[in-house]
């Protein structure tokens, strides 16, 4: 029978007080800081932000003064653009390599497949065992919508429409 989720409060949340303390310290510093008034008065952008981001990515903002009506000043990011390209390709290759299936090594076999245990190994502290389908077949009626235990009661109502169609 499903129960509602409970909030897990306990001793393991004590290190979280460090995060709360950090927020209090940062809030005290930020609320006391003085920002120059000229900074606060002239806010906002005049011109196209998206187009200017595009020019900034390729370091073209300096050459567009007379040609485009609204180019907002920015630094050039061409080197960062190329480097992030390399980083993303490396991340993709790394992710594919990490997610590969086993090729013979025993430590890389999948331990479970949707709850059904595949490899008969014991691991230390894992407690969720949904693969105990064997002993629970005896209480098939009490399981309700368990994997294999619902076949018996489900076939009963399925036969009566067929019987009614055979009569007509």
């Amino acid at each position: 029978m499903p129960t509602r989720p409970r909030l897990n409060l306990g001793r393991h949340m004590l290190p979280g007080l460090a995060a709360v303390a950090l927020f209090v310290v940062m809030a005290a510093i930020f609320l006391r800081a003085e920002f120059p008034d000229a900074l606060v008065e002239t806010v906002g952008f005049d011109g196209s932000v998206t187009a200017s981001i595009g020019y900034a990515l390729f370091d073209l903002t300096g050459t567009m003064d007379g040609n485009v009506e609204g180019v907002i000043a920015s630094d050039g990011f061409l080197a960062a653009f190329e480097i992030i390209d390399v980083v993303l390709v490396a991340a993709l290759v790394g992710a594919v390599m990490l997610a590969r299936r086993e090729e013979g090594g025993s430590l890389r076999t999948a331990l479970a497949d949707g709850g059904r245990r595949l490899v008969g190994r014991e691991h230390g502290e894992a407690t969720t065992e949904e693969s105990a389908d064997g002993p629970s077949f005896a209480d098939g009626a009490a399981q309700g919508s368990a994997d294999g235990a619902g076949h018996g009661p489900a076939e009963g109502p399925g036969q009566s429409p067929g019987d009614g169609g055979g009569d007509a």
Binding site: I72, A73, S74, A90
Partner: peptide, 23 residues
Amino acid sequence: YYGNLTGQVFSLFTMALAAAEVA
């Protein structure tokens, strides 16, 4: 607040780095 786009473009790069790290 500075009317300069450097911060926004740099935040795009840090977002790309975050995506690579999540992968």
